[in-house]
Amino acid sequence: MYYAIFGYDVPNSLPLRLKVREQHLARVQELANEGRVLVGGPHPAIDSEDPGENGFTGSLIIAEFPSLADAQQWVSEDPYTTSGVFSHVEVKPFKIVIP
């Protein structure tokens, strides 16, 4: 089943994000290489593809896991979680309807 992972950034998270970004992306890329990622990316803090110093307010990943517990375990070990980029994370089951 797919799960939507909503990560919510702490204020002024950009320096923390940049510090562990490569490690975070490597973990997500592992899921993508296994064909398990539907979509993923950050939420810019302003209405711009490149928010610059404004940074981001969080991230969304929709990926396939065997169970909710597995999705929660995966996110608990992610560098954005362990380094303090995220203030909190929500993981919810996701059902594809469209397309």
Rank of each mutant, 00 (worst) to 15 (best):
A4N: 00
N12R: 05
L14I: 10
I98C: 11
G40E: 07
K92E: 12
G35P: 12
H88L: 04
A69S: 15
F94G: 06
H24G: 02
K92S: 08
V85S: 03
S67M: 09
H43T: 05
E64V: 01
L16G: 01
S76W: 05
F6A: 03
Q29M: 06
Y8A: 02
G55M: 00
F6M: 14
I5S: 02
E77D: 14
H24T: 07
T81M: 15
S13L: 08
K95M: 13
E53F: 10
R21P: 10
E64F: 05
G7I: 06
E22G: 06
S48M: 12
G55P: 01
Y3G: 03
A4Q: 00
T81C: 14
V10R: 05
F65L: 06
D47G: 04
L38V: 08
N12I: 05
P51C: 15
W74R: 00
L68P: 02
S67P: 03
I96K: 15
D70T: 06
G7C: 10
D9A: 00
F56K: 00
F6G: 01
R21V: 07
N54W: 11
E77S: 09
V28Y: 06
S83I: 09
V91S: 05
L16E: 02
L16F: 06
N33R: 10
I98T: 10
E30P: 00
L68G: 05
N12T: 08
P42H: 00
E22Y: 09
Y80N: 09
P42I: 00
V91E: 06
K95L: 13
V89M: 02
H43L: 13
G41H: 07
P93G: 15
